[in-house]
Simulated scan of single mutants.
Amino acid sequence: MKKSEIKIFILIHLIVLGFYVMVYAIPSRFGFLIWNVFLALVPLDVALIHKTLQIKKQWPLRIIALIVWLAFFPNAMYLMTDFSHLSAIGTGLANPAQYLNYGVLFTGVFIGMLIGLSSLEIIVETLPFQKWYFKTPFYIFIAIVSSSAIYLGRFQRANSWDLVTNFKTLIDQVSFVMNPDLYYFVIVFGLVQLFIFSVYHLIWVRR
């Protein structure tokens, strides 16, 4: 990595650490965000490793890194569904306790998603073909995989590491949820992610 990239990498981790301190310091119902944001940070670290392996032309290790990245990337976009926890504090902004809870939740969700989106762009930059008609199918594929994984995570409580530790159970869960509700969820959240990917990509390429 370049020195500027290393500096950004360190700053991002310090920001995440600062968020952890905030969650511990502020009484809220969203302590689970510490774990969720950590899982969103994993794909960024793996994407940077993947980029380093590309420079060194370590193809076998690069393929492994890409698979690990794909397994953990949905955790970042999963944070979109954490807004459902607003029901725990009410949807109105009526008192200081709600202000703090809203602040913690929104900070965690957006930090995690932005980190995940950055990891996606790093991966896209390493693709062998950089024309839009090659990258567009890749974004669509990621949106479909990510939406499907979010559904399994939210409703079946599946986790990324189940791919290694509980693969058979995970396959059974996939078979169990193959229904119209899954398809509708994937279409809706797939489109949401494609809109987000598109806007972030346009910002990224002009940085």
Rank of each mutant, 00 (worst) to 15 (best):
M1V: 14
K7G: 10
I12P: 01
V16W: 08
V16D: 04
V23A: 01
Y24Q: 07
F32N: 02
W35E: 11
W35S: 09
A40G: 02
L41C: 11
P43G: 06
L44N: 02
H50Y: 15
K51W: 13
T52C: 07
I55S: 11
I55K: 15
K56Y: 06
Q58V: 08
Q58T: 11
Q58M: 12
I64A: 14
I67D: 08
M77N: 13
M80P: 00
F83K: 01
L100T: 10
N101P: 06
Y102G: 01
F106D: 02
G108S: 08
F110P: 03
M113R: 07
L114G: 12
E121R: 07
I123C: 01
V124D: 07
T126S: 12
L127K: 09
P128M: 13
Y133I: 08
K135V: 14
Y139G: 02
I144P: 00
S146L: 09
S148C: 13
S148E: 13
L152I: 09
A158C: 10
N159V: 14
D162T: 07
F167K: 07
D172H: 13
D172E: 15
Q173S: 15
F176S: 14
V177T: 05
N179M: 12
P180K: 07
F185L: 09
V186F: 03
V186N: 04
F189V: 05
G190F: 13
G190R: 11
V192L: 11
S198H: 11
Y200M: 06
Y200T: 08
W204I: 04
V205G: 04
R207L: 12
R207G: 10
